[in-house]
Design a protein around this nucleic acid. Structure first.
Lengths: 284, 284
DNA sequence: GCGATTTTCTGACCTTAGTCAGAGAATCTG
DNA sequence: CAGATTCTCTGACTAAGGTCAGAAAATCGC
């Protein structure tokens, strides 16, 4: 069986198992829609917010809210600041019901795990974590973005803030490349920018990779390597045959990434105080 | 987060991702019910069989069949042997439609995997395989069964057949313990017996574990270890503090299992030609 | 050969999960 | 302050996915 077939097979198996589990914990007491809504309301949420999070039609959501309200599980009141908006909150009975649903879901999963030994459970959790990391990585969408745009500057600012925390000597944000010089890629995960990387021209066939940033939310899934590959491909597509880059001694993961991506260490090629270690790949 | 919470979290994430995938490949062209039915009919199936496999109400299934028939995707004819039964078969158009659905499902998964490197895809498949093995193991139901019952004898017969294949000298089924002496556990996976194990009394506090069998379908998921643990617990619950067992030199996985389960090797305690290696655990 | 059983089908009914078009109230913009 | 916009709600409608009670035909058991 090829990889696609194996993944499909797993999907079929998993959805069947999860379906049985879900049926059991909902136990016919509440529809999936109502249960999800109770869960999302949690400590209280604006109706607009709920609509966006659950991706529901406003008419449908309104009806679900009325039905939960009629059962005394929630309260919906206008928001004082803007009386067009309404805020849904759980009543005591609603909180009780949510606890109940939660306890039954926990119990169903617990019963599933019970026959396994401690070691087997640890293996299960570790394997699930691996699956999720890889799927999240696969879902990240990498797009070319104008380096003067708001989102580009926001990414670079976060990058600068994180470096300032990381370097003993701090980081001077003035070191960031000014807009207009960079070809910049931004990585999006479910609508949120979680990483970026850029290149700029250093010489006729030489590009410099700069500002490789992976946000805290997306660390440890291999996004750094993917961004590096994409930016290399982008520079190559623009006719650059050699890539140089510099980095700080403190960024050990980055240094390991460059080494394992085929870069060789060279003497620093500029006098930036942050580029203490330099690498290159390819030939001019 | 504890293990139950981690598993729930994974379930939520995975169902969301799979849901998106499924929506895409069905592409609104056919309802999930009809698609599943087409898939189950495949090369042809009795209506009764379909009802059992899909767990559908007979009225509902009938209507789904009529709808597919009206579209010219299937043909439903009485079975010649028993004209109450009816057999559904795909027409050429139906086979075409199924191929189409299949190709689109493959394409959706392929698109999901495309951003990953070869190594990452291999890791994904391996991790999914691990998850599935562990879930299958967790779903196996181990039940006490009378050793004279049909299912018990069927398990022991399969066990004997497999040993006959495995041992160079063959295996004499007369060596099987006759009914009435064994406390026997059978492992069920989705209604099918896939393994067994038994103990019998050897002395005041000494029990002998016999006939540990794991069927081909359930190998490699750790079921042998689970059966061994359950049978040890059962013997202990009956007041036996020491367990002995003998096995054949050719059964290397079994020997490894006993060693890693805390058994120490002893001199053979009986003259069975198949018990060439013997182990014990506990104290009399 | 006759009553019991099995299998499939039809009709009537239901819930869930939506979609779409506006209405009405509140707020924002020029 | 008038018109545009935003937000929620109601009414009317739809499809999917079912359940339940029987009817009709075929077969089984005696």
């Amino acid at each position: 069986m090829d990889q696609v077939e194996l993944v499909r097979d797993f999907n079929r198996y998993y959805t069947r198992r999860i379906g049985v589990l879900t049926d059991r914990y909902l136990g016919q007491r509440r529809s999936l829609g109502e249960a999800r809504l109770l869960f999302e309301i949690g400590a209280g949420a604006e109706v607009r917010e709920l609509r966006a999070r659950l991706g529901l039609d406003s008419g449908y959501l309104s009806r679900l809210l009325r039905s939960l309200e009629a059962e005394g599980l929630i309260r919906v009141d206008p928001q004082p600041d803007d009386r067009r908006l309404r805020v849904a909150e759980l009543t005591d009975a609603g909180a009780q019901e949510l606890d109940d649903l939660d306890a039954r879901s926990r119990e169903a999963v617990d019963a599933l795990l019970r026959p396994l030994t401690v070691v087997q459970r640890e293996r299960l959790v570790a394997a699930q974590d691996q699956v999720r990391r890889l799927l999240r990585l696969a879902a990240v969408d990498i797009q070319r973005v104008d380096d003067a745009s708001g989102i580009a500057r926001a990414c670079l600012r976060t990058y600068a803030d994180e470096l300032a925390d990381r370097f003993p000597e701090g980081y001077d944000a003035a070191t960031l490349t000014p807009p207009g010089q960079l070809a910049l890629l931004v990585a999006w995960d479910e609508g949120e920018a979680v990483g970026c990387v850029a290149w700029r021209r250093l010489g006729p066939k030489v590009a410099e990779v700069r500002h490789l940033w992976v946000g805290v939310r997306a660390r440890g899934i291999g996004l750094g390597r993917r961004l590096l590959q994409e930016i290399e491909a982008d520079a190559a597509a623009h006719g650059f045959t050699m890539i140089r880059l510099g980095t700080h001694r403190a960024l050990t993961e980055a240094i390991a990434l460059y080494r394992s991506s085929g870069y060789r260490e060279i003497e620093p090629y500029d006098d930036s105080p942050y580029n203490q270690v330099a690498f290159e790949k390819g030939a001019a």
